[in-house]
Simulated assay, not measured.
Amino acid sequence: MSFSNIYRKEFKWNLRTFIIWTAIFIAFTFMYIPITDQMLQQSDAMLKFIEKMPKLLLQMFSFDPELLTRPEGLFGSEGMSFVYILSAIFASMFAGSLFSKEFEQKTIEYLLVKPGSRLTVFFSKVAVMFTFILLLVGAFTISETRLFELFVHMEYNVKVLYAFGLYALTVQVFFASLATLISVSTQKSSLNTSITIGLTIFMYFGDSLGRSFENLKWMSIISIFRYIPLIDTIKNNQMMLGNAFIIMLISMIFLFTGAWVFSKTDIKV
């Protein structure tokens, strides 16, 4: 089968999943942004409550007293923390659906016996995956910037909002590439889901633990979330563009390793 035929087939089969996940991401923006002005008016009460919370808990969900005085800080703390986790889960499950489930259901055999190389099959599926990732992140970024424009009447930094979109893209590219490698290596969707979600939790909360305890600093160093920090981005009005680019380059290593494994590994019976 040709690249275009496989691409169209996978695009059609996964369109409903994409629509559902896009709705979830947009819903998160509607949960936080429209009430930003009202929450800022009550920031004094929130600050008093937050000062009583454990420091570790505040770091895990990117809470910082300074953030609660800025519109983008409110959404960038709790809201973006969940977006990070949802991004990793979406990308991992989507990659598993494209690869490991096909191995389990033996539908991959139909594609591989058709004319065309294995790499054509692999990159056709990858192209669909990244198409949906770009569309989802685009919809999320447009939603958050538009909602800020409509509902937030205090001064805010648009650059920080675009940074949120870039970080969501970075997380999705990383975990999609990693999940692809795991899927073609294990050919088991259960293993892919367990490993990638486990790594997501380990990296996200490991970053917080590593920042809080010196003997656990290594957990933060190996976490991608350390290098696209929400708090620092908001406080310094600085987009970690270079860090995001490096993480995506590392993701490409996972992806091309997955392509090599896919082209060499036999289908398990």
Rank of each mutant, 00 (worst) to 15 (best):
I89P: 00
K159D: 14
N192A: 13
S190N: 09
Y162T: 11
G116E: 01
H153N: 14
E144R: 07
L166K: 01
V137T: 14
L147C: 07
S124N: 09
L181T: 04
F122D: 01
S87V: 09
F122S: 02
E144H: 12
G138F: 13
I108A: 06
L166C: 04
A139I: 06
Q105N: 15
M129T: 05
V152H: 07
T193I: 14
F82E: 10
M154H: 15
K101S: 09
I142C: 05
T131D: 08
G138Q: 08
P115E: 06
T107K: 12
K159C: 01
G79K: 02
Y110L: 15
I133Y: 00
S194P: 02
T186W: 03
V83Y: 01
E102S: 11
F174G: 02
V113M: 15
I197G: 01
A91C: 12
A127Q: 06
K101L: 12
K188I: 11
K106G: 12
A88S: 14
E144V: 15
A176I: 02
S190F: 08
I133H: 00
T186Q: 04
S190H: 04
E149T: 13
Y84L: 10
I89K: 02
A88K: 02
S143C: 13
A176K: 01
F103I: 04
G76S: 09
T186I: 08
E155W: 02
F132T: 01
S117K: 15
F151R: 04
L169M: 11
G198K: 04
